[in-house]
Amino acid sequence: MFKRLMMVALLVIAPLSAATAADQTNPYKLMDEAAQKTFDRLKNEQPQIRANPDYLRTIVDQELLPYVQVKYAGALVLGQYYKSATPAQREAYFAAFREYLKQAYGQALAMYHGQTYQIAPEQPLGDKTIVPIRVTIIDPNGRPPVRLDFQWRKNSQTGNWQAYDMIAEGVSMITTKQNEWGTLLRTKGIDGLTAQLKSISQQKITLEEKK
């Protein structure tokens, strides 16, 4: 169930391209415009997507990853294993993690069937560096609404905000991946996880038929 919630949630996290980005210092504006741009692209490019579902990787690479804190999220997933990894191991892992996100997020976007969304009203940021933004996803086919909290983090150097995690039903996506990959990290280390991520990233994206 959580895996499905995570995939549905990713439908609204794909941010804007650099040329049309919203105010990078306001995570609420980023979330709002990102959702609108993403849904528009999914709707307008269905012919290309249906002809070649792996085209979704391109959308992810162009529109999402430049505005997601990939390395920060990847380091959180590694936890204690990050500090013990060599620079070469980290570089290989982050490259594999990025390719994994292209496949995983692309597969999530393949679930698009006309969903709509509501974003919580903007709250004062103050001096906060981590801000959760509640998004409610509404399914046109009558499924119950899904309420999610996207975690946005302020870059201490640039002042810009980027998304790095999502919490559904009190469970963090980062925590879920830590639990899912924990045994592999304990037995085969970061190299074993890197190899698995490379394998997963090679899987073809498949479209979910409308139910």
Rank of each mutant, 00 (worst) to 15 (best):
M1V: 02
F2P: 00
K3L: 04
K3S: 02
R4L: 14
L5C: 03
L5E: 00
M6H: 00
M7P: 00
M7I: 11
V8M: 13
V8N: 00
L10Q: 00
L10N: 00
L10A: 07
L11H: 00
L11W: 06
V12A: 05
V12W: 14
A14T: 10
A14E: 05
P15T: 14
P15I: 03
P15F: 13
P15V: 04
L16G: 04
S17H: 06
T20Q: 14
T20Y: 08
A21L: 07
D23S: 15
Q24I: 12
T25D: 11
T25Q: 12
N26L: 09
P27S: 06
P27D: 00
Y28P: 03
Y28L: 04
Y28H: 08
K29E: 15
K29A: 12
M31P: 00
D32Q: 09
E33I: 06
A34F: 14
A34M: 15
A35S: 13
A35M: 15
Q36G: 08
Q36H: 12
K37H: 12
K37T: 13
K37S: 07
F39M: 02
F39D: 01
R41A: 08
L42M: 15
K43T: 14
N44C: 14
N44K: 14
N44F: 09
N44G: 12
E45V: 10
E45L: 04
E45N: 05
Q46I: 06
Q46H: 10
P47L: 13
P47H: 13
P47F: 10
Q48M: 15
R50Y: 05
R50V: 07
R50A: 10
A51G: 10
N52Y: 10
N52C: 04
N52F: 03
P53T: 12
P53H: 09
D54N: 11
D54V: 08
Y55P: 03
Y55L: 08
L56M: 15
R57S: 11
T58C: 12
T58H: 08
T58Y: 07
I59D: 01
V60C: 14
D61N: 08
D61L: 02
Q62E: 15
E63W: 00
E63A: 03
L64E: 02
L65Q: 11
P66F: 03
V68Q: 15
Q69M: 02
V70K: 04
V70M: 06
K71S: 05
K71P: 05
Y72G: 00
Y72C: 01
Y72I: 01
A73G: 15
A73D: 11
A73T: 04
G74N: 00
A75L: 02
A75R: 00
L76S: 03
L78W: 03
L78P: 01
L78V: 05
L78I: 03
L78K: 00
G79M: 01
Q80K: 08
Q80G: 09
Y82E: 00
K83V: 07
K83Y: 02
A85V: 05
A85C: 06
T86R: 05
T86K: 12
T86F: 05
A88L: 10
Q89N: 05
R90I: 03
R90K: 14
R90T: 04
E91R: 04
E91I: 08
A92W: 08
A92D: 12
F94P: 04
F94Y: 14
A95R: 10
A95V: 11
A96G: 13
E99A: 10
L101R: 04
L101Q: 15
K102R: 15
Q103D: 15
Q103S: 14
A104S: 11
A104Y: 04
A104C: 08
Y105E: 01
Y105G: 00
L109G: 06
A110W: 04
A110N: 15
Y112N: 09
Y112A: 05
H113I: 06
H113E: 07
G114M: 06
Q115L: 02
Q115I: 02
T116M: 15
T116F: 15
T116D: 15
Y117Q: 07
Q118C: 13
Q118I: 12
A120F: 14
P121T: 06
P121S: 12
P121W: 12
E122W: 12
E122H: 08
E122Q: 12
E122R: 10
Q123L: 12
L125I: 11
G126H: 13
G126Y: 15
G126M: 15
D127L: 06
D127G: 12
T129F: 13
I130P: 01
I133G: 02
I133S: 07
R134Y: 01
R134M: 02
R134P: 02
T136A: 11
I137G: 02
I137L: 06
I138W: 11
P140G: 13
N141E: 05
N141V: 13
N141Q: 05
N141G: 07
G142V: 09
G142D: 05
R143C: 05
P144N: 05
P144K: 08
P144H: 06
P145V: 04
P145A: 08
P145D: 07
V146N: 04
R147N: 02
R147M: 02
L148F: 08
F150M: 15
Q151A: 08
Q151G: 07
W152Y: 08
W152M: 04
K154W: 02
K154D: 02
N155H: 01
S156V: 03
S156F: 03
G159N: 14
G159E: 13
N160S: 09
W161R: 02
Q162W: 02
A163T: 12
Y164A: 02
Y164W: 02
Y164C: 04
M166K: 01
M166T: 10
I167G: 07
I167K: 02
A168M: 12
A168S: 05
E169I: 04
G170A: 02
G170W: 04
V171K: 00
V171S: 00
S172K: 02
S172D: 04
S172L: 00
M173H: 06
T175H: 04
T176Q: 00
K177F: 13
K177N: 15
Q178I: 02
W181I: 15
W181A: 15
G182K: 10
G182A: 14
T183L: 06
T183D: 11
L184K: 06
L184Q: 07
L184R: 08
L185G: 10
L185D: 02
L185C: 13
R186K: 00
T187G: 08
T187R: 11
K188E: 11
K188V: 08
I190C: 06
I190K: 01
I190V: 11
I190L: 05
D191H: 06
D191E: 09
G192R: 07
G192F: 09
T194E: 10
T194F: 03
T194H: 08
A195C: 13
A195P: 14
Q196K: 14
K198G: 11
K198I: 11
S199Q: 14
I200V: 11
I200H: 08
I200A: 07
S201H: 14
Q203G: 11
Q203W: 09
Q203K: 10
K204I: 07
T206N: 12
L207K: 15
L207N: 14
L207A: 15
E209R: 07
K210L: 08
K211S: 09
K211Y: 11
K211D: 06
